[in-house]
Computed example of a mutant assay.
Amino acid sequence: MIPYTVWSEAGGVGKTTLAANLARAHSNRGQDVLVIDMDPQDGGLTNHFGLDDAKADGEVDNLVLHMLNRGRGSFDDLVRTSEGIDCIPSHNMLGTLEELLGKAKELEEDTNPDPDYEYEKEKQLRRVLIDADVPSEYDVLIIDPPASEGQHLYNAVYATSNLLIPFEPSPKGEQSVNGLRDVVRGIESELDDIDVGILGAVPNKVKGTNINQKYLDALEEEELPVAPVTIGERGSMLGDAWDNQVSIYELDSSEDYRDLRDYERPTLEKFDDLAAHITKQFERPEVEA
């Protein structure tokens, strides 16, 4: 399985847009894709795919309940599908995940007969996914957590062990890269027993200005792996896709979008190339006979 978390500590740099369209690009390659929206805020991945109708329903089963061992049904019943992509939608209960996991830790450790037992908050999503046999059911797992550090991010990273980082070449984007290695080391320290791989920083919203180039040069100086794909500023296509709650690929197939197809075609091709680049990183090297 190809598991990764799309994350940047700077908001508004295209994290959710990148996750949504990469999910569709992987699906177009014939890969079975599961996306998990770990962001409790409105307007995230769940909204992008038009699956937010039950987000505020306190009666429905949701991922947080399963992470607390309080699921009201099977994991498979959480899954909804859009554009051939399976999705675990966000739920308002994610807004109290940190507090709920803290209470679960206290209860589990107080009631466990083993005095050395430790309830590990950051490992609960991984446990749920393994119990549901997700690693063998899907080819690709993409998780979209909020920008802030905390249990949403820690659970996402522990479940995937890999980060893909959208980078906007601007002062805002620079915030997401400066000191990134310190952030990753901090996550590894928090999670204790994993090494976090960085699949690449993806330059996004690039306009080709001198200011853009300044921050792209700064990215190179960080000695981080940079994806061989640059996503240009395509406000029309990406914005229209967001407004219509579809991926850019679905938008491209619409007759109403016909006049802009040729102009926007390179954007689709770059997401295709990025999905291929990520996939290649997980391929096992051929062994010569």
Results as ranks from 00 to 15, higher is better:
P3T: 00
V6D: 00
V6I: 08
E9T: 14
G11L: 08
G14P: 11
T17K: 02
L18R: 03
L18M: 13
A19T: 10
A23E: 06
H26D: 06
L34A: 06
D37A: 09
M38E: 02
Q41C: 06
D42A: 13
D42M: 10
G43R: 06
N47P: 00
H48Q: 05
F49S: 02
F49Q: 05
F49C: 02
G50K: 12
L51A: 05
A54R: 15
A54S: 15
K55E: 03
A56Y: 15
D57T: 12
G58C: 07
E59D: 15
V60S: 12
D61F: 04
L63R: 00
V64Q: 05
M67L: 14
L68T: 03
N69C: 08
R70N: 07
R80L: 15
R80P: 02
G84V: 06
G84W: 11
G84M: 14
D86R: 12
P89D: 11
T96M: 14
L97K: 01
L100N: 00
E106L: 13
E109W: 03
T111S: 10
T111K: 11
N112M: 11
D114G: 07
Y117K: 10
R127H: 09
I130S: 10
D131I: 07
A132T: 04
S136C: 06
E137T: 12
L141T: 05
L141N: 03
P146M: 05
N155E: 02
N155Y: 03
N155W: 01
V157S: 08
Y158F: 15
T160F: 02
S161G: 04
I165G: 01
I165M: 13
F167H: 08
S170P: 10
G179A: 06
L180P: 00
V184R: 09
G186F: 13
E188Q: 15
S189V: 05
V196R: 05
G197D: 07
V202Q: 00
K205C: 03
K205S: 07
G208W: 11
T209G: 15
T209W: 11
N212L: 00
Q213I: 06
Q213G: 10
K214G: 09
Y215G: 07
D217A: 11
D217K: 09
L219W: 01
V226K: 12
V226Q: 12
A227H: 01
V229R: 04
E233T: 08
D240S: 14
A241M: 07
A241D: 03
D243H: 11
I248M: 01
I248W: 01
L251D: 04
D256M: 11
R258F: 09
L260A: 14
E264A: 15
E269Y: 11
K270A: 07
K270G: 04
F271P: 04
E283V: 07
E288W: 07
A289Y: 12
